[in-house]
Amino acid sequence: MADGAAFVEESASPAQSPLVAVTFQRNVQRKQKYLEAEPKALGITQIGLSVFQLICMSVFLAKGLSPMETDIPVFVLSLLVIIAGSVAIAAQNLHVPTLRACLGMQIVSCGASVFNMICTLVNMGHLPSLCWFNYYDNTTHESDGICHKIQDTHSHFYAEGALIHAALLAISVTLAAYCCKVVKCCTPAPKMPVITVHTSPAQQ
């Protein structure tokens, strides 16, 4: 027998139907698969990690320890990741257009995370301006020690940033995969065979 989670697309009248009928029904609970990805937790994680990166990058830019040429695109793309996380949380209402928007934003977020990770790895080799100045000038051991501390902090920050962008990429791929299971544009909606047994009314 069919459960309450499905509806019959085609039905025949009892007078014309055979004793046993096999019909194919769409599973209306298919959209519930999106909730198995824990979109609220993953969306909040996307937003939190991106905001953390934006704050740290702002501090580094303010201190002149990071190149603006690569950090501005990373800033913009990190904002897109924040938007993707917000849409993932909003898609918990299982509204199909919102789920499609979530799929699109997570695909964009995947590309943004890959680009940000590449820029972060490139910035790891960037020498802060203070160290360039010390390299070309006669400096004291004290300023040279400060330069080494800055270099260590700089490399640790960007190594951490690369790990964060890798985590954001994994989250985006996970949410996109679950959205793809729900949205019909990726795969046709599966149908379940349901066997219906028609019983004749009891004769008196």
Score class of each variant (00 low, 15 high):
residue 118 I to P: 09
residue 113 S to Q: 08
residue 121 L to W: 04
residue 130 L to F: 10
residue 129 S to T: 14
residue 139 T to Q: 02
residue 144 D to N: 11
residue 146 I to K: 00
residue 135 Y to M: 04
residue 126 H to M: 03
residue 122 V to E: 13
residue 134 N to K: 07
residue 137 D to C: 09
residue 145 G to P: 05
residue 124 M to C: 15
residue 122 V to K: 12
residue 114 V to G: 05
residue 123 N to M: 14
residue 132 W to V: 01
residue 142 E to L: 00
residue 121 L to E: 15
residue 125 G to K: 07
residue 121 L to T: 05
residue 144 D to L: 04
residue 135 Y to S: 09
residue 113 S to A: 13
residue 138 N to E: 02
residue 120 T to L: 11
residue 130 L to S: 14
residue 136 Y to F: 14
residue 131 C to T: 04
residue 119 C to V: 07
residue 119 C to A: 11
residue 134 N to I: 04
residue 113 S to D: 15
residue 119 C to W: 09
residue 135 Y to R: 06
residue 144 D to R: 08
residue 137 D to V: 07
residue 141 H to M: 04
residue 127 L to A: 10
residue 121 L to D: 08
residue 133 F to Q: 14
residue 124 M to G: 09
residue 116 N to H: 13
residue 147 C to T: 01
residue 137 D to E: 12
residue 121 L to V: 03
residue 114 V to H: 02
residue 145 G to A: 05
residue 123 N to Y: 11
residue 138 N to M: 08
residue 131 C to Y: 00
residue 132 W to S: 11
residue 135 Y to N: 08
residue 119 C to L: 11
residue 131 C to Q: 03
residue 117 M to W: 11
residue 113 S to V: 06
residue 114 V to K: 11
residue 123 N to F: 10
residue 129 S to Y: 00
residue 135 Y to H: 14
residue 145 G to V: 12
residue 146 I to C: 00
residue 144 D to H: 08
residue 123 N to K: 01
residue 140 T to C: 02
residue 130 L to R: 13
residue 128 P to S: 06
residue 124 M to E: 15
residue 143 S to Y: 08
residue 133 F to Y: 09
residue 130 L to H: 13
residue 120 T to C: 08
residue 143 S to C: 00
residue 141 H to A: 03
residue 113 S to M: 08
residue 126 H to L: 01
residue 120 T to E: 10
residue 147 C to K: 07
residue 126 H to N: 11
residue 116 N to D: 06
residue 139 T to H: 02
residue 134 N to Y: 05
residue 123 N to H: 05
residue 122 V to H: 05
residue 136 Y to P: 07
residue 132 W to N: 14
residue 126 H to W: 07
residue 120 T to V: 01
residue 132 W to L: 06
residue 147 C to I: 03
residue 140 T to N: 02
residue 116 N to I: 13
residue 127 L to Q: 15
residue 139 T to D: 05
residue 118 I to Q: 15
residue 140 T to S: 12
residue 129 S to D: 10
residue 134 N to D: 03
residue 135 Y to F: 07
residue 120 T to K: 02
residue 122 V to D: 06
residue 141 H to I: 05
residue 146 I to M: 00
residue 118 I to W: 13
residue 113 S to R: 09
residue 125 G to P: 10
residue 140 T to D: 05
residue 137 D to W: 06
residue 136 Y to T: 10
residue 147 C to H: 03
residue 134 N to S: 09
residue 147 C to A: 02
residue 138 N to L: 07
residue 141 H to N: 05
residue 131 C to F: 01
residue 146 I to N: 01
residue 115 F to A: 09
residue 119 C to P: 04
residue 130 L to D: 14
residue 125 G to R: 09
residue 141 H to F: 02
residue 132 W to Y: 12
residue 117 M to T: 12
residue 121 L to K: 15
residue 124 M to R: 13
residue 142 E to Q: 01
residue 117 M to G: 15
residue 131 C to R: 10
residue 118 I to Y: 13
residue 141 H to V: 01
